[in-house]
Write a protein that binds this DNA or RNA. Sequence first.
DNA 1: CCTCCACAGGAAGCGCAGGAGT
DNA 2: ACTCCTGCGCTTCCTGTGGAGG
Length: 413
Amino acid sequence: MSAVKKRVWPKVENIFEQQLTKSTVFLNKDIISAHYIPEKLPFREKQIGEVTQGLGAVANNAKPNNFFIYGKTGTGKTSTVKHVLEQLDDFVSKRNLPVSSCYVNSRSHPSKYKVLLKALRSFYPEKDFLGYSASFVYEKLLSFANENAAHLILVLDEIDKIKDVDELMYSLSRGNDELTSGSITIIGISNNLTFKEKLDPRTKSSLCEREMVFDPYNATELQKILQERCDKAFKEDSVTPGAISLAAALAAQESGDARTAVMLMQRAGEIADMDETMIVDDVKVEKAKASVEEEIILSMISTLPQQQQLVLYAISQLSLSTHGFTKVNGEVEKGVMFSGEIFEAYLQLAKKFDVRTITSRWFRQYINELEMYGLILVTSSGKGVKGQTRLIKLGFDAGKIKSALEKELMKAF
DNA sequence: CCTCCACAGGAAGCGCAGGAGT
DNA sequence: ACTCCTGCGCTTCCTGTGGAGG
């Protein structure tokens, strides 16, 4: 047996070593990442109090009400609930109360069976229930509550993604009736209010025993939030006040979304690290905005069905061509077009790419979805136009959308 | 006032893929 | 392995709507 020869690497500093010794504006980068949950949630004291009070029933060995929490993305729904749950876990373990909670992201568990399975796994961490039937999982969950006289709290984030919510809620409320001790409580979180209207009336009344709405943050609130986070995430004096107020203002005018505000600051910090200026100012935030926006656009576009991408491509193409739409008062608005016009352009494009075409009915469906995603803005025609149609405008820069789509469509053809 | 235009969007149904039940 | 069922993407058909134009 011959000794293994040691490989001799050229004497260049390891790139990770370089990375480590490189100077950075960050003190603790995790704090400014989108997934971080701060221990204090400014401007959500009222909501925290409400959830806490609702769940407080378990201290008296009673079943808490179900909750339905609604609000746009980045308004602190998930953070609030997770925060309260952490406190609750802490509280009940100190007092030895039979309370267990489980957080489920319904996007990765989008059916009744998967939700129940996920819950069961978290209550029996040592066992693996893979392959068991739906009814077994359900019974096992009930008996867990019954035998331990435990109050179970299930948080269903993005509850609108569950295909059979009605059945899930029905089973659970029936389960609650069967239990002689213990209970199961649901906290549903959604950013889609129309979801509530689609529910079976019985599901609706049981899920919405208590309802809460999270309003978007305004610019001042966002600024405070950012300030607090930046103080901990960045090194001292590496962030200018202007940078924070700009990031807050940009996020506020977009949607009041705290996540984008945080992402802006994170990206701005990365940019400052790259060019080694060691200072995060409003210029870096401005740059970050372009980069974050591009990323959002790209990630949204890449998940669209191909046909819908073509529709959007038709819109961006028309939007870039010189024509504008003349309003009643003689004003000319650029980049606005009729839906019929877009459909025609779409048909032409599909012909060029030699793909099948969708009908105008489904085309309108696609337009509605694009509006929901915020990729386009839609208004009714109103006066000055014959017939009833809609005026459509891109929500983002036409050039960016077009080039992103070209990349995406190139992959396909 | 009526009619036509240019759509909007609901309802029903169709073909298909992928699970669940047997 | 086989049916049966169900959700999904889409088409077909249809009724409704707001404004222009006669």
